[in-house]
Design a protein around this nucleic acid. Structure first.
Lengths: 196, 196, 196, 196
DNA sequence: ACTAGCGGGACCTCCCGTTCAT
DNA sequence: ATGAACGGGAGGTCCCGCTAGT
């Protein structure tokens, strides 16, 4: 039991160390100019260990472990809430919880992704995976095991919204992320009514 | 002048030949498994020539530029329509116009892109560009020169929706694209109200 | 003693489990595409344990040792038979005895070996060893303790013949192995006379 | 025309240089202990060039270009000769022609292969290819386009014989290769008659 | 303008061994 | 005795650019 704990803590630390050094180096020298060997050396491990944790170089940027949390938070929303409100609320609480700790990291990462063509690829994939996560969580809330077309459409729309939110946030110097989220969801709500 | 003509015709042909062989090979063996050398050999040129026409391997997969057309169609929607309806209508008409001619090509290409990680990169870029196009068109409709945050959010949400539509269409065997579009926009409209 | 028994039974089981999973995976994905890690995982052990049982990856593919039996059968042939006839008869009886029981296994394994470059290595070694076995048996039949050059040449030629026989058999769908053997030995006999 | 000549001569030289350095290094430090990088450096090329010429490290040992020659020599044998005699004569002339020039290289190579497990693998493959070459040449001699079962059997038997010849030659200090060939073919001829 | 050949340098994988903990 | 994590180090492949020839 303690073994497990100890081991997984150690692993999480190694993973984190690699990721941190990677992001720092990417920031300093650029993504393409930073080799896996550089990162491994900086993190004090071998390239083998790097690839054990991140099978492809790009994954070191993309990786986070927010999915289970967000799933939980969405599932916890009252079932009578309409999907938009549920997702809004869930994203809001999740970000609120994450921001104080991981805020700078996320900001740096978002900027890096926006700056680096090779990473936007994976970003898209990650986004598609998040669509599934969101849609599944929504489906669960209403008792279904797997998401249907409508649910997936809604989840994808919200991800589209969040895209703009994060991009805007990353490109500005001191925007208020929570405020942007609220504004964005308001804009989405208005899409069927007022003339933009 | 005639020389010039002859030259540029020759060039266009080479370009086309390379591109055709490339797409065929991507389709047969997958994008990553197809080397630049393979393509060049198939097209009967050296890899150098390949690079002359397409500076990077990814660029051989081109994305048809329907943007100007879409812009026009969006701008042509009656100004009192809410944005969602305008985009829905515009996309609908555009697709209706394109489908009979380019349908199979688009289907094939969409499938290839979905299957091929490396291509989704550019797809993402294209998508971000399309967000700007949509947002700008929406802004114009209401007299603004450049899109604001809310407009961009809405455009991005709609692109998210279209993502799901195209994916579903490409993955199914004989789905009705226009029907999917209508369903998807209906689902988006419902996002603020009903429980999924 | 009982402890010892239990231990060795356990060990034999582990060994068997590793070997079975290895062969299954080789068959499914090919030898090179199957990593030691894959096999170990499938057998529910670590790769360390794998290496404890099979010091090198190749050794997991074992070649059943029919050698003593063949030796006996060759020795049992009447001494006045010329070598070719003796080997033919011996191989024939041996195969006849083995086929009903091990036939499918041998067929599967032969196909695997033919399909799998890395395995042909050991196949070759086995073959060289079999040459020695054949040659020694032939030598014994004529009273010599060790084979001479001529005997070795003859044994090797016969093995070359058997190579083609097994290959042809493994590549066909329902060839008659005994018939192929007879045909092959007939062809060898004709080599000095008729024009192919 | 001269271009072609010049280029292919250059290529042949590079290939030869790589192969020579490889064999020398293998001899000095052993096959496994010699890296591709070592060889490339010794030959004054990059590892890329090495792999362009020899897709796998092992192939640098195996490669020779005797096949076309041997094909020709076999085809040139009088058609009324029985296959064994034809192959015997052809191999004899071929070796006679090659020996004074490439003798030491072949000897070194054969010894290396016998000494090095990883190489015996490829050797088997090469042998199977040579079987096809021999069989095809035999078939041509009698007017057939592709070899049949009997022809293949005969070719494979002869290769089995040559195996023993080369092994014996390589393991002895000063054996007479041509004499061994004659003895071996005599032994093969006797296989159906006398008691070994 | 086009080609053949070659190289730099990175990515990623694998084998097999080691170390430390159980 | 067994397992998890890690590393050394090589193999093999690719992209893309450069040079020298035609």
């Amino acid at each position: 039991m303690t073994t497990s704990d100890w081991r997984s803590r150690k692993k999480a630390e190694t993973r984190r160390a690699i990721q941190e050094h990677a992001l720092r180096l990417f920031d300093e020298k650029g993504y393409e100019a930073t080799t896996v060997e550089d990162i491994a050396a900086a993190a004090g491990v071998s390239h083998m260990t790097f690839f054990r944790y991140f099978p492809r170089k790009e994954e070191v940027v993309e990786y986070d472990d927010y999915d289970p949390m967000i799933t939980e938070v969405i599932a916890a929303r009252p079932p009578e809430e309409p999907p938009l409100e549920a997702l809004h609320g869930a994203i809001r609480s999740a970000i609120e919880a994450i921001l104080p700790i991981d805020g700078p990291t996320i900001l740096a990462r978002t900027r890096l992704i926006l700056r680096t063509p090779a990473l936007r690829n994976r970003s898209w994939i990650a986004q598609q995976e998040t669509v599934v996560v969101f849609a599944t969580a929504l489906a669960r809330r209403s008792g279904a095991a797997t998401p249907d077309f409508a649910t997936t459409v809604q989840a994808s729309a919200v991800l589209g919204v969040m895209n703009v939110v994060l991009t805007t946030w990353a490109e500005s110097d001191d925007a208020d992320l929570l405020g942007l989220i609220d504004d964005a969801f308001a804009a989405l709500q208005q899409v069927s009514f007022t003339v933009a």
